[in-house]
Amino acid sequence: MSVRVSKYFDALTETRAWRSVFRGGSGSSTLHRSMAIQQNIFLHLLSTKVRKRMISLNTTWYLGTLTLGTFGILVITGILLMLYYHPSAPQAYADTKDLQFVVSSGQFLRNLHRWSAHAMVFLVFAHMFRVFYRGAYRAPREFNWVIGVVLLLLTLLLSYTGYLLPWDQLAYWAITVGSNIASAVPVVGDRVRFLMLGGHFVNANALLRFYVLHCMVLPIAALFFVAIHFWRIRKDGGLYAHQKDAASVSNCDSGRPQL
């Protein structure tokens, strides 16, 4: 049966419509497989070839991939949650309650978004330490490490801004505690805090600001940096491999662009 299915699939990939969408064409030759990566705007950020030992779980624990995965889940559930949410006080809280009580699977959506957000923060930290202990931050990957630090900060900010949105006591006071730290910055502290909250304390303005940051500014910034992050993996010579594990110096650490 599987043979028949793949025959139909092959026939499909030969059609004009398919060819117009996927520039790489079909086929299972090395060329076609390379083209599948190269000719796709998203996938071309990745290398067409990967060292075989890099795909084993032990090497990277797939932490970067998983982090991207949580980001994807968060974008999807986030968009769905936005359909039911008004960023105004105290309506925001009522909307959160209604998610729980009347929206079909609303509670599930919120749970998934919340737990994925926590998972993402955790995974980002784990990814960072894993990369460090593997030594994968060394030249020529220094700058990608720095982008990683930026992504860490963006992740924390995304999580922090999202924390306020349910507008419950937990959210309100967590943000109050956090924003009070901002006012400790010498000289400009209070101004920074005012800018952050749109007022002198956490109120409806802060909610709107955090909403805009959480749903638009920060995700776009994160996407932007994620793209660079992935592209730089390819440009910096693919996933880092230990030298002593019989790695080829010329192959991995030359800093020479590959493909």
């Binding site: 009522a94 309650k97 209604d98 729980q100 009580f101 009347v102 419950d168």
Partner: peptide, 15 residues
């Protein structure tokens, strides 16, 4: 009043 489950409607919860 807004709750639609027995527990949430009748008893005290975190929320």
């Amino acid at each position: 009043g807004a709750a639609t489950s027995v527990e949430d409607a009748h008893r005290a919860t975190d929320a």
